[in-house]
Amino acid sequence: MTRRYFWLSLLLISAGGCAHGTGNHLPYDAWRLGFLAPSYMEVWIETADAVDVHDRVKRRAMSGVAAILTPPGNIGDPSGWPEQPGVGAGKRVIGISLPRLIYVRWQSLAEPQTYEAYIPITAETREQMVKAETAYCRGRSEPITDYRKALTIGLAPGGITKAWIMGPCLPPIEVARVEGEVVKLGPSLGQSDGRYAFALKPESKAYIEQYGIPFGSW
Rank of each mutant, 00 (worst) to 15 (best):
I102M: 09
A67F: 07
K91Y: 10
S97Y: 00
G86K: 01
G95W: 01
V87P: 14
G88K: 03
V65A: 13
R92N: 14
A89T: 09
G80E: 05
I68G: 06
L101K: 06
V57D: 00
G95D: 08
P99Y: 07
R92G: 01
S79L: 04
P78K: 11
L98I: 07
G64Y: 01
G64V: 03
Y103A: 06
P78I: 09
K91V: 09
R100A: 08
R59A: 11
I102G: 02
P72W: 05
G64R: 02
V87C: 10
G86F: 00
N74K: 15
L98S: 09
G76W: 09
Q84D: 13
V87G: 14
S79K: 15
V57Y: 09
I102N: 00
G73S: 06
R59C: 11
D77P: 05
S63K: 05
D77M: 11
P71R: 11
G80F: 06
P71S: 06
I68Y: 10
K58G: 03
A61N: 04
K58Y: 03
G90W: 03
A66K: 09
R92L: 12
E83V: 09
I96Y: 08
G90K: 08
Y103N: 10
L98C: 10
M62W: 10
V87T: 14
I96C: 03
S97Q: 04
N74P: 03
W81N: 13
P99N: 04
G88Q: 01
P71Y: 06
I96H: 08
G80Q: 08
R60D: 13
G76A: 06
A61Y: 06
L98N: 01
N74V: 00
A61I: 03
R92H: 08
P72A: 12
V93Q: 06
L98T: 07
V93S: 01
L98E: 01
R60T: 11
K91E: 15
R100Q: 12
A89W: 07
T70N: 15
M62T: 12
R60K: 10
P82E: 13
R100K: 15
R92K: 14
P78S: 05
G88R: 00
Q84C: 03
P85Y: 11
G76V: 02
R100P: 00
P78C: 05
M62A: 14
G73Y: 00
R59F: 02
S97T: 12
R92I: 01
N74D: 12
G76Y: 03
K91T: 14
T70L: 11
V65L: 10
A66C: 08
A61V: 02
S63F: 09
G86V: 05
G86I: 04
P72S: 13
G73D: 07
G76H: 04
L98D: 07
K58P: 00
P78E: 02
A66R: 10
I94V: 12
A89D: 13
E83L: 14
S79I: 03
A67G: 11
R59W: 06
G80C: 10
R100Y: 02
A67H: 08
I94Q: 13
G90P: 07
I68P: 04
S63H: 09
S79E: 12
G73N: 13
G95H: 04
T70F: 00
L101C: 07
K91M: 07
P85C: 09
P71I: 05
Q84A: 11
S97E: 05
I68M: 14
I75H: 11
